[in-house]
């Protein structure tokens, strides 16, 4: 019994260009799958499709079973029930993903209140707890801050706290660390890894960087121009990539890794 089952997903633009081409993948409860491919390969569109949030004008066909719901062709009402509940998402850009005019605490309170029916002081306490969970120092201060008053890494923790506040069965992370500095990146990865393991939450982890995916995921699917080119355990893909495209991804990850090792060795 899988928690997410995508079969022959095709995503097209309004003018008929195919952006995702017969993609299939599935995730068991608690499983962590990496979705990897270079920029423009269709990773974000696939993530958005799972929540029925494709950009206006795009169409999809095939099948996306998320929990008990068929997303393809679902009504908006069905989608609203599913979003946050069966799957929640953390986006790439921590600055723009939060409402610039609203205090962080109120933004977290929104999904918390909706999901757990909390109000007043109980809700306030839950917000603080949610911020503590993502290891933000001084949670009360952060709750009162506006997004522009905290750092990029802190914003991304807030976004993660919002997604986790929904207590979803699947967490989709669309390049959650790409916009961050390298050191902040690895802290956030460790945090995300720890939090989803604690909760036995399934993860669809999207990245263009194999080294990052390897930290969180056990299995990866390699995407190229909207098509799956290779799929397998992270270890197998890294050790013995079959496709040329995968080899390049592995090589670039290796080069980066060794560059980092050399620098820190010095």
């Amino acid at each position: 019994m899988s928690i997410l089952d995508i079969r022959d997903l095709v995503i097209r633009t309004a003018d008929g260009r195919t952006l995702v081409d017969h993609l299939s993948l599935s995730l068991a409860p608690g499983e962590r799958l990496g979705l990897i491919g270079e920029s423009g390969s269709g990773k974000s569109l696939t993530s958005l499709a799972v929540l029925g949030l494709l950009p206006e004008g795009m169409t999809m066909s095939g099948s996306i079973e998320l929990g008990d719901t068929q997303i393809v062709g679902a009504s908006e009402r069905q989608l609203i029930r599913v979003r946050g509940h069966d799957a929640a998402i953390v986006f790439q850009e921590p600055l723009t993903a939060l409402d610039p005019l609203m205090r962080v605490g109120r933004q977290i309170a929104e999904p918390l209140g909706r999901r757990r029916g909390l109000k007043g002081t109980a809700l306030k306490r839950a917000v603080t707890a949610a911020l503590e969970q993502v290891r933000l120092p001084e949670p009360e201060r952060i709750a009162r801050a506006f997004p522009h008053e905290i750092s990029g890494g802190q914003r991304q923790r807030v976004a993660l706290a919002m997604a986790l506040a929904c207590d979803p069965r699947l967490l989709i992370a669309d390049e959650p660390t790409t916009a961050l500095d390298v050191t902040v990146q690895s802290e956030l990865l460790d945090l995300l890894d720890a939090l989803v393991r604690e909760r036995e939450m399934a993860v669809l982890f999207v990245s263009h960087d194999l080294a990052v995916v390897a930290k969180v995921a056990e299995r990866v699917l390699v995407l190229k121009d909207g098509r799956a080119v290779e799929e397998g355990a992270v270890r197998d893909i890294v050790n013995a990539p079959r496709e040329q495209y995968t080899k390049t991804l592995v090589d670039s990850a290796r080069q980066l890794e060794s560059a980092l090792v050399q620098r820190s060795g010095r």
Binding site: L51, L53, E76, I80, R81, R83, G84, H85, A88, I89, F91, E93, T96, A97, L98, D99, P100, E110, P111, R114, R115, A159, M162, A163, A165, C166
Partner: peptide, 15 residues
């Protein structure tokens, strides 16, 4: 077109 609107909807807000 904003990301924050998409975030809100992705977490279960209606439009």
């Amino acid at each position: 077109d904003s990301d924050y609107l998409r975030t809100a909807r992705a977490l279960g807000s209606s439009f």
